[in-house]
């Protein structure tokens, strides 16, 4: 988990992005959620040595980022920040799998490197897809979509509560941490003992807050059901968006687009 300040910034920033107006933002969150899931499944369904087949999938993030007015630089930076795990596991591939697979003049590339690159591509595609989903649909939108797609209501509502109080609790944690930092010297006061009571404090406050929120809900007639005013409506555009992309994914999953173009080119020369 990243540092608290950057976490705070990230959630806030993605949240702000999600309130922009763009053709992508206006689409029904259900359509975006489904397309994203199909995209991820299609991407990871490739053979481990596949590289060129994956490239066609970059069309999706490219279109979404440009039509959705998302800042490319920010997304790339996020991508780099979360890369270590995929790299950590993937880097064993070139070490363990040394069979030469591609020979290009003097350059011999082992299967391990190919699959490592494949892992990095998958990683880039799937992570960006998740970030794009949230940056164009808003968290509340995703929750609403989940609920309409028959995810249990209490889970969806709970996600909303989590999101709402994330901001409050992160701010509270920040204050606690500042108080700790200001009074700990030479690394003393940063150990597990202090953390136990620090987190314990936060937990007590949170439990009390939970009680107060419940009280606030009771005061306004809460009866076990949470009603919202929001209504979702799938329009023609949503269906075109959804089926268009899914069709595209199926086609490029089964037909290697770059390979095809490449073949045409090498055929020409």
């Amino acid at each position: 988990m990243a540092k608290i300040e950057s976490t705070f910034f990230d959630i806030g920033y993605l949240d702000t992005l999600s309130y922009q107006q763009s053709p992508i933002h206006r689409l029904d969150p259900r359509a975006k959620l489904i397309v994203t899931l199909v995209f991820v499944v299609a991407v990871v369904s490739f053979d481990r040595y596949e590289i060129s087949g994956l490239l066609g999938f970059f069309l999706f993030p490219v279109v979404m980022v440009s039509l959705g007015d998302l800042p490319l630089g920010y997304l790339l930076k996020k991508l780099l920040l979360v890369a270590p795990f995929a790299v950590f596991i993937g880097i064993f591939n070139p070490i363990l799998d040394r069979q030469v697979m591609i020979v290009m003049g003097p350059l011999a590339i082992s299967g391990g490197w190919v699959s490592f690159i494949s892992i990095l591509l998958r990683f880039g595609l799937t992570v960006t897809a998740a970030l794009i989903l949230i940056a164009t649909s808003s968290f509340a939108g995703v929750c609403l979509a989940l609920e309409r797609l028959k995810v249990p209501r209490s889970f969806a509502v709970q996600l909303l509560f989590l999101y709402r109080y994330l901001f409050v609790l992160i701010a509270e944690t920040r204050r606690l941490l500042r108080a700790r930092t200001l009074r700990s010297f030479d690394g003393r006061g940063l150990g597990i003992k202090v953390v136990g009571s620090l987190i314990g404090h936060l937990l007590l406050r949170t439990l009390n807050r939970g009680r107060r929120i419940y009280l606030a809900m009771l005061c306004r007639g809460f009866d076990g059901e949470i009603h919202t005013m929001r209504r979702l409506k799938m329009t023609g555009w949503d269906f075109i968006f959804m089926f268009g992309w899914i069709l595209f994914f199926i086609v490029i999953r089964n037909h290697n687009l770059p390979q095809l173009i490449g073949n045409l080119l090498t055929g020409v020369f």
Binding site: A140, R164, Y165, M217, F222, D223, I226, T228, M229
Partner: peptide, 19 residues
């Protein structure tokens, strides 16, 4: 913060009347 628990202001103000 204890009282405003819904995703938007409108949702929150509507919470009671909807109930």
């Amino acid at each position: 913060d204890d009282q405003l628990f819904m995703p938007t202001v409108a949702d929150d103000v509507a919470f009671g009347p909807l109930n």
